[in-house]
Nucleic acid binder design. Structure first.
Lengths: 309, 309
DNA sequence: GCGCTCGATAGAGGTTTTCAATCGAGAGAT
DNA sequence: ATCTCTCGATTGAAAACCTCTATCGAGCGC
């Protein structure tokens, strides 16, 4: 039964019988038969039949919802029993927004010291995708903005507030400043993330609040690419302080704090709000709580973050 | 997998392989093998082995906890899909404390009018047993005192406050009174419930609060038996008003309100606090909310009850 | 030590599951 | 219109699994 529910999860994710079967490690006829059997035992069509995959029926959508619960509980149970025997083992799949990638190591490094048998897979994607993947059990945790429209039921552990810095070369127009305003930032040629990234949308909002229209002359979805363009001296960019810190300041690149309307966006760990949590998830949450104390720029900020939980 | 989890549930309930197997509708070797397979897939012993059933291992207890979740979610899923097709159908198992049996019909009657395809099984048992059975998925809902030590996670819907009346014959010492005090009640020969019933323990407390020691000359676990003894004219008894109302006042039996310290005990519906609820449970909760309005003795009381949720 | 209860084990029989191979319907291209 | 390609359903054989009856063996009480 549970394996059949996994078939349904895979199908709704892949939207293709063959790929779903492959993802489950069975052949396509097996998956087809499994779903047909699930439909028989529940007494309702779950998959809209056609020459190709069309979608799930309303009943299918409801079953999908239950399947997520049941499958994730089953996995959590398995994991907990393994953890009871051999200590914390297993695999944590984490997705993070690109601007948070730099600080992931402050989470993973102490975690591995504490639990050496846990392996990680960390992927970079948009805040929207993180919530979608959490919902579909494709990742175990995400690191993203906490002021998102709540898409699914998630538990959030605040980590730090994102503050922005202008990345530029010392010999460019603003290169010698100790701090700059958002209005000033808009006056230099900028390279920024693409607008599908929430970070870019936040920066756009901040620039508009300063009365200017964002007009980057180069867009990319890779922070590394932006950074390398800044190094040429022909572009400047805007980056969260935590990330600029990680990339390291060479003698050709300066990071200048941007002052002005301080609409700080909190970044934190998000995990499925299932009670009780997976033992791995629980350990990660504990680690995040510890990391939050280290990452906070001031005791004040620490207090504010704690209030967000 | 799920059927194996059901085996574990049955075993922990019956504490006997043969009876557990019977409860699951399989033979004892099948249940034994199923549990052994569950142990193999989880990689841990779940049942303490001995010549007879000893108990579950710590791992077994943890798995049992998950099994309850997974099995109940699976049942809820099945039910919801059936409900989507054929409207609300199925079976509701309710347990109630004896003193609440009289008012169950104010819940079930309108429920059946609304959902004619739902059948009921209503059993009478102690408040402790109700919570235990709820925990073990043996009943779907209970009707009991709401001031219990919370044994499991339950959601409670208040129905009414229990108030006590003296049941007696018109020609007995207190038979002509409009109301009596707890101290007066203690002066007549009483027949009461046995002390394993919470109702009796409450009455004992009330009698002691009035400075008297409860000394019933007859005890039983059946309200009907108590009532029939009252009718002989040789005993009086103490009953919740709601129940006295249901049993009906013949011309040989009077119900006299007992005044004094008003430590009202709220009675209500309790259901497993699983999110989302079974469709049947959700419908029952809705019915209980409606019934609470009807049962309340005053608007004041209605307000107090609402606050308990 | 005898008998009884309980749970484990063995082996047969039947069902279910799985897979490779193939079919057939529909979409898109020519 | 027809060809072709993709996708999901179907088929049939082999393997795996599950469930049963029958029986065993350990421990408990007498």
């Amino acid at each position: 039964m549970i394996d059949k529910l996994e078939y349904l999860l895979a199908l709704s994710r892949e939207r293709h019988f063959g790929r779903a079967a492959e993802a489950c490690g069975v052949t396509q006829p097996t998956l087809s038969a499994g779903l047909k059997q699930l439909e028989a035992t529940l007494g309702a069509l779950l998959v809209q039949r056609g020459s190709r995959f069309v979608g799930l029926t309303p009943e299918g959508v409801r079953v999908l919802d239950w399947a997520r619960r049941i499958v994730s509980d089953t996995r959590a149970m398995r994991q907990e029993i393994v953890a009871l025997k051999r200590g914390l083992t297993g695999h944590l799949r984490i997705a993070a927004i690109p601007t948070a990638l730099g600080m992931v190591s402050t989470l993973t490094t102490p975690f591995r010291t504490r639990h050496p048998d846990v392996t990680f897979k960390i992927s970079s994607c948009t805040s929207i995708a993180i919530l979608a993947q959490l919902e579909n059990l494709e990742i175990d945790a995400g690191i993203t903005y906490l002021d998102n429209e709540p898409v699914g039921r998630v538990r959030q552990i605040p980590l730090y507030y994102e503050r922005y810095q202008l990345l530029t070369t010392p010999d460019s127009p603003l290169g010698d400043r100790a701090e700059v305003t958002w209005a000033e930032v808009a006056s230099v040629p900028l390279c920024l993330l693409t607008p599908d990234m929430q970070n870019r949308r936040i920066i756009d909002r901040l620039l508009r609040a300063a009365g200017t229209e964002p007009a980057p002359t180069l867009e990319s979805n890779s922070m590394i690419l932006l950074f390398s363009h800044v190094r040429t001296g022909r572009w400047s960019s805007i980056m969260p302080a935590k990330l600029a810190q990680t990339l390291g300041l060479t003698n050709t690149v300066r990071a200048i704090p941007i002052v002005g309307p301080d609409t700080a966006h909190a970044v934190g760990l998000v995990v499925p709000s299932r009670e009780p949590m997976t033992s791995l998830t629980a350990a990660l949450v504990a680690e995040a709580r510890r990391a939050a104390n280290e990452l906070a720029d001031s005791p004040d900020e620490r207090e504010n973050l704690r209030a967000l939980q």
